[in-house]
């Protein structure tokens, strides 16, 4: 049970927020993170069109041997991605709560520009509280 990191990808595929919580995954440079987030954005767009009948939500979970990537797409096109260990069961729940914190502390903050990197102390504290409580 471990939460490795959180990404927030804006609707254009840019990484607007990135935070690591635990060791366990290879450390990536910020440039690599950006490329990976952009790639994931593209993959997600393709998977959402794969469904034979009608539209689909797109990829929700991508699993590897050592980690799991849970993707949560909001109606406005922002993606929240949580990198966890395989046994983590409450990833969806955590993402939901992070979305709540994002709507409160980021979208209602007059000093945040939409689609730009998130730099909000209030959001930091909220995220730390959520992830901290989620790992017990």
């Amino acid at each position: 049970m471990a939460i490795f990191g959180l990404w927030i990808i804006n609707k254009a595929g840019g990484l607007v927020y990135q935070k690591s919580f635990a060791e366990g995954l290879a450390q990536l440079t910020s440039n690599e993170q950006l490329v990976l987030a952009g790639t994931l954005h593209g993959i997600h767009a393709i998977t959402s069109r794969l469904s034979p009948n009608g539209s689909s939500s797109g990829a929700n979970v991508i699993e590897g041997e050592t980690f799991k990537m849970t993707i949560f797409l909001t109606v406005t096109g922002t993606k929240f991605v949580l990198l966890t260990s395989l046994t983590e069961t409450i990833a969806e729940h955590i993402l939901q709560r992070i979305y709540e914190a994002y709507s409160d502390a980021v979208m209602k903050n007059p000093f945040h520009t939409p689609e730009m990197p998130v730099r909000s102390e209030g959001f930091e504290t909220r995220v730390n509280a959520i992830i901290g409580s989620g790992q017990t």
Partner: peptide, 12 residues
């Protein structure tokens, strides 16, 4: 202690 107006504001 917790002004309603500033609850969601983080000043840079």
């Amino acid at each position: 202690n917790d002004p309603l107006l500033e609850r969601h504001i983080s000043v840079p």
